[in-house]
Nucleic acid binder design. Sequence first.
DNA 1: TTTCCAACTTGTCACCGTCAAGATGGAGAA
DNA 2: TTCTCCATCTTGACGGTGACAAGTTGGAAA
Lengths: 219, 219
Amino acid sequence: MDSRTKGPARRKSGARPKAYHHGDLAAALVDAAEAVLTERGVEGFTLRECARRAGVSHAAPAHHFRDAKGLLTQVAALGFERLTAAEKHARDTETDPRKRLLGTGMGYVEFAIEHPAQFQLMFQKGLVDHANERLAKASAASFQVFIETYSELYGTTFPPIHKDADPSVMREWALVHGFATLAVQGQFGPTRTAAEIADLMEFARRVFEDAQKYAPPPK
Amino acid sequence: MDSRTKGPARRKSGARPKAYHHGDLAAALVDAAEAVLTERGVEGFTLRECARRAGVSHAAPAHHFRDAKGLLTQVAALGFERLTAAEKHARDTETDPRKRLLGTGMGYVEFAIEHPAQFQLMFQKGLVDHANERLAKASAASFQVFIETYSELYGTTFPPIHKDADPSVMREWALVHGFATLAVQGQFGPTRTAAEIADLMEFARRVFEDAQKYAPPPK
DNA sequence: TTTCCAACTTGTCACCGTCAAGATGGAGAA
DNA sequence: TTCTCCATCTTGACGGTGACAAGTTGGAAA
């Protein structure tokens, strides 16, 4: 009866998979979901495949996430948290306010290219529960980085509500987001090899620098 | 045996549904698909539901489209053709080159808001066969409008290949596309009522005008 | 040691996309 | 007019999916 010996569902052997029966299946499912998204894309995502990879039965996920949308919501939230980290990381390699703003955008695009399916998931209506608190907070935080970095440059602050945001910050976000979206979708060619990715990032830099060339002078 | 009397599959009564047995089921399925997308979104799309609405059996679509992706590809191509028309229509209400470029973007955003599911479909990898000739041509044409209109303003021409495109045109496209994407996804609030849509379009105008304010002078 | 209940499994359902094979009915030939 | 043919559509089946219901299990608390 010793449960299925195949798969990562080791019981008390310790170390990595923790033993699922009272380990964290939730986390294992999120990991599996990310892997499935990476390998098969958004449209190839399957709850049952996640369960399979986590070494549990097809109905197990329901005890941790209400349904498929519930799991995807957590994956998306995690994605936004990583996106925010990527923005900040790329930004903080620079000190000049102008370059910091550019860096934020570069980090944004880099995240999108390296996690295309997750990025798609994050910005798609219907696949995800937008009312979820963690998701809403993580999503807002990733935009907040633009607001902060923009404020460094121009010395003004803006309310975080989108509709009331300064058109200039929105222009920045829309530009970067649009570029990332088109890149992920493949409009600028394939992004499989490291060289292709480097090319694309170089193109992104040229586009963003072109945009900054005609931006208003710093305060 | 008289076939099913329910549904729109009238036989020889003439007028609208043409009679499917040798009318154009293909067109009827495309119409049905657009309706399903509008009502249920991309993730709620179903080939069988399209067949149901067209009044045919679940296997009938296979004789006109290889599979679900085949049908969606045609719907996406049609969407790009309409997007191109929307860009041109909005652009051609203006005569000043600067306002024409802005108008192109406004038409783009307006199309996205009024056909959110179709817009999502058009710019999503995996749901659609990007190698399809009609789709590729229609997609390129919608971007070509930006290139043309930008050229009117600055008097230069660019190769239509994206990677080699002038960063300035790409900036224009990415900005507009990013705004449209975020709007469709609901980042700027709901867009159900006419007033909400008008508000959003006004916001779009402000953002795009802000971008033009510091753009280089016309040639 | 016993009890209890959260975590997981098994089984089932309707629905999906796809494929194979059969039915049908209009167009063109006789 | 009548017959033949074949593109078009239908029927039926298969494996896979998400969701639900009910049963099983095993560790923590008593």
